[in-house]
Design a protein around this nucleic acid. Structure first.
Lengths: 221, 221, 221, 221
DNA sequence: AATGAATGAGCGTTCATTCAT
DNA sequence: TATGAATGAACGCTCATTCAT
């Protein structure tokens, strides 16, 4: 099941709501509706505004009714974050599949895709919240690192193809650096950020820089 | 006046509270004491836990007494963020001053310093909060970008020294990329983050990568 | 729906609360119960004592629950004042209907009714509060003047019947004077006021005085 | 000692601050300054706004310092109300003194003076507050009725001169009615009230009505 | 599946007051 | 006289949650 923020947001990585076995048909729609409302609030107004009342109001329910779907706010938020992170994971899995391209081209493509996603409202707004949360919430922290772990797998794979001589640790470090490097752009060139317009130039710098490192990093790290 | 988070936190960039003249001995430190308590809470428990009551409790005051020092919570938080950001600004100004080193060495040094600061508890904890806040709070956003603007000045200067042929825009883009690249490491190799131990390796990758870009980027960008 | 201050207060003008359809049996009376409690406090302890906590306590609710019925205190107070004023308006409409009496008798009757109402605890207590509030609260001011406007209509009508030669403006001025004249008695001969016992004598003086003015005022005012 | 609301308010009845024996010179000025500030707030913003902090701020003091002059807020308010009421009492004493006029003319004059005073900001604003307070504060109630008692003495005297046949009780009732009648105009034709402009006409109606009653009321009441 | 009603804790804030300085 | 600092209570309000209906 897919879950977009709400109407017309392109949402490169969609939100996947885990299938609930044995649930009623309307029940699933209910969960999804609520999570979508919560997602919208998180994006538009931030984590502080993510209250049960506001979520309920946004999807036309009464506060009391939310606890029919989610026993506590914590459960709702966990499901929401899970759905958010899962949807990004689902996205990253598909990217490297295109075998018609060279490894270099594929690395470049994946980086460009990530950086373009960083420019979307959803990603610009949500990831800083996740980063902040992860400092004080073990669940978020673990799930988030899982997401990044999985995202780096693609990078590591491509790096190994481009520079097979590179040891595992160097490959891991490099993909970590590349990933972090791009994430860092969120605050500067993300949605409505001051250097939003420089993103194309930054993409060029980034890909060129990344490719050079991948190719020239020696076996000694 | 300098203000550290609390006791033994190294605090590479201190917190600068503007001097207040006059008043009694007890209350003179009042503002500072309160801001320090607020800073501690922000670091230890996150922005959500930053309530007037908790701040008061932390510095042995009653809630009502806080509003003697800060008329509203908003004023307190603004002063706190201002102090935080100012202290980082104060820090960055001093870094490039060392003329005994070559520009390349200085660039490397500044990057290493930044990345080491990223590993401190204070920076790892506070910046994600600032990033999240900046998405919904104009004041934080402006102040934060001001901080980064100023921080990039040093980078731009060094880049110009190392590669004078590089046009202004390319220089700006590159320093932006370098800065963002390092900030992105916060979530991965910051305090208590899973790749905290890889920071030295990441520093090597980063500085090597940055230096290469600075030297090889052509006039056409 | 009618709403008396509470138990046995005669309440010449009742308090009209708009009917609310739907809801459960318990909560249906919620708004009314709360407003009645608020009215009681206003009468017994004055406007200063009209706090959400006291209102809640008086009708066996917790403070937080009040905001389920009234989103803010302001809304509650407005509804209360509206209900109070409306009830007086409802009262005044019925008075002149008795066509079996002569206009003079009807004028006398209406004045006596008003003056007797002034002697009730509710009116003696509430109107000074309204007068004081109206000086600093536009809503109260407008609503109060509306009430008086409507109350004077009856007087103007009867004056026109008794002395048809009187020009409109003179009629208006005279009914205004008559109305104000009676209101002024509140502070002197109202409930528990020192001249409470002189009210019958004052009624005689007032009606005689008013009737004389109505009959003898010339067309020139 | 006289005490006006503040600068240019004409203040027909001034505010008399009781002389404090044994007090320091500056101390008296302090009391007066504070009471004047309190008076201003009472007039401009109403009783609810009459807080120690606001009073202190208005006369350039810190809240703590107020308790040097007045041990409690209650004491301050009592002194304020006492000063207000006393000043009106002082005023009324002087009015009937003019023996060059006929009793009728003097009665008319005193009534016109009262009604014109009712149109001032100070009287329009303060008396409704006093009326409201008097319902729940015995001190205010007693002092206020004292004021009115004294004010009616003049009326009773003049009535006795105009219609000596009138028994004492009738005289008292009539002067009570006349006084109340005028007070009632406050809410309708006072400062910034909707019928402020009709005050001249109301004065004519009132004086004519009053004089007629005084002259025609028989010995039997 | 949903609502109305209620709870208890906590929020930021204001208040009158106290007291050492 | 006057200030800075502090207190404790109360204020209006929002929150997540519960539960009978």
């Amino acid at each position: 099941m897919k879950l977009d923020p709400s109407p017309d947001v392109p949402a490169v990585p969609d939100f996947t709501v885990p299938e609930r076995e044995g649930g009623y048909a309307r029940g699933k729609a209910g969960h999804e509706r609520i999570l979508r409302a919560a997602l919208d609030i998180l994006i538009e107004e931030g984590y502080r505004a993510l209250t049960m009342r506001r979520i309920a109001a946004r999807c036309g329910l009464r506060p009391g009714n939310l606890s029919y779907y989610f026993p506590t706010k914590d459960a709702l938020v966990r499901d929401l974050l899970e759905a958010i992170i899962s949807s990004y994971e689902a996205e990253f899995g598909l990217i490297v599949a295109d075998v018609s391209l060279s490894p270099e081209a594929r690395l470049e493509k994946i980086c460009v895709l990530i950086m373009e996603d960083i420019g979307t409202k959803k990603t610009t707004r949500i990831f800083p919240e996740l980063w902040a949360l992860s400092n004080h919430d073990g669940f978020v922290n673990e799930r988030l690192q899982e997401l990044y772990d999985r995202a780096r797998v693609s990078l590591e794979l491509l790096i190994a193809m481009i520079n097979p001589a590179l040891p595992l640790q160097a490959r891991k470090d490099l993909s970590l650096f590349i990933s972090a490097s791009m994430e860092g752009l969120t605050v500067f060139a993300g949605y409505e950020k001051p250097f939003r317009g420089r993103m194309p130039a930054l993409e060029r710098i980034a890909t060129r820089s990344f490719l050079h490192m991948v190719k020239t990093l020696g076996p000694k790290g």
